[in-house]
Design a protein around this nucleic acid. Structure first.
Lengths: 239, 239
DNA sequence: TCAAAAGTGTTGCATCTACACCCATGG
DNA sequence: CCATGGGTGTAGATGCAACACTTTTGA
């Protein structure tokens, strides 16, 4: 019987957000993951467990806020492109043998079901300065095509985030978010080629992006490159 | 500190699913809502409260399963197009004054935060036979452009579902799901015109849909209409 | 024979794709 | 002066929008 019509059954769960933070370093599309020392009884020495940055949603906090908080704590960046993309609610998503011991060490209520809201965000890697000791574990960028095995269903979460990123890149031209404030059209094109994993025609690409509003040429060119310096552009965020 | 790195804070919440069930009656796009008698102390007589069909997710149940269950209980249909589209997590989404009394009467733990996963589904209204007494309240179809004020944030949930429906209708041609098994191209076109709220050109529309695979003409025509009978088609679901 | 919706092609315009050479700079 | 990536235009193909008349049926 529906919750809106009846008392239903109690269904206590923890709710978390997990962030798939994409960055682009001019060569590769990367994702930020956390490596943590894993201290479990059955292990003589600690070993590393990789996971997405995430956290339980606090009692008076919206999902969006929780995601922003995680992102801020990790990268110290704010005003970043951030988007909810899917809720992951498999009842066994944190129940795999591989994760059980770690969870026991980690959570107050390790037996409790955890559902998670997936967010992805796009950051300019040049802006990102890892905060020294913000985490027990270390954050690192990994190539999106070479992601290690992670805790829980985090690999699936990344796969889905990547699907969404590709869709949005095409539909909404969000590529700028991954680049430094000032960028060249070649950088932008290169980003598209890597994320979408296909080559594009230079002239056609330029024709397309140049007819966008809020893409503004600057009075400024690249410097110190050993070829003809490129025009720099910036993206004027819609208000 | 991220949930994956620390114990975090306890954050007990109820998790529900809410379903926006779209139907199409050849004239209008409709949504199924529940009217329930509301018995609250401050009211001398019961009055009606409208809401989306929804329920708390059970302890060992996935989101998808919970959504299917709600849909089944309400319409007795299965094998229906059903899609998760957004998670709603505003901490105050069930805290509005207008909802407080009702919630108190309704839930074991009315003070508890409730987050909800929104699903939308598409049903053929011809298949839908309301189950007599499956709900305390009565289900009814309402025109999507004339939806009454509902409990909680359910009006927003419908708005977002409608956005998503429009996107998917264009991108993935899911319109068949709302029509009877056998349908004419004019019915299909009419559906598009109503959902997207714009007129379309008959010849161009036909050119477009006819080049889809898995749209099959049948050896059968409309009967008993007072005009030239139309060719019937069916949609061959992708395996 | 009338009313009502079904069904059918073509043309112009806009958009997309493919493609190759000269330019500016630093070393 | 060489190497490197920056920057530019066009022609042909494709896709999309606009548009009107004939057909079939039941009443």
């Amino acid at each position: 019987m529906p919750g809106t019509t009846t008392t239903g059954q109690a269904s206590i769960m923890d709710v978390s957000v997990d962030c798939v933070i994409f960055g682009f370093d001019e060569q590769k599309l990367k994702v930020l993951i956390i490596d943590q020392k894993q201290m479990v009884k059955s292990m003589p020495v600690a070993h590393l467990q990789s996971a997405l940055p995430g956290d339980l949603v606090r009692q008076e906090e919206s999902f969006d806020h929780a995601a922003q908080r995680v992102l801020k704590e990790l990268t110290n960046l704010s005003g970043i492109y951030l988007k909810q993309f899917h809720a992951f609610g498999d009842p066994y998503r944190v129940r795999m043998k591989k994760d059980q011991e770690w969870l026991n060490a980690l959570r107050e209520n390790p037996e409790r079901r955890v559902v998670t809201i997936g967010y992805y965000s796009l950051v300019n890697m040049v802006d990102y300065k890892p905060k020294a000791s913000s985490f027990a574990g270390k954050a690192r960028w990994v190539d999106v095509y070479e992601i290690p095995s992670m805790a829980f269903d985090h690999n699936q979460i990344v796969d889905k985030a990547l699907d969404m990123l590709r869709h949005e890149l095409i539909a909404d031209n969000i590529g700028f978010e991954l680049l430094p404030e000032k960028f060249t059209l070649s950088q932008l094109q290169h980003l598209y080629e890597i994320v979408l994993d296909k080559k594009m025609d230079k002239r056609n690409f330029r024709k397309n992006v140049l007819k966008m509003e809020n893409l503004q040429p600057l009075d400024e060119k690249q410097k110190g490159v050993l070829h003809k310096p490129a025009q720099l552009y910036q993206y004027q965020r819609k208000k």
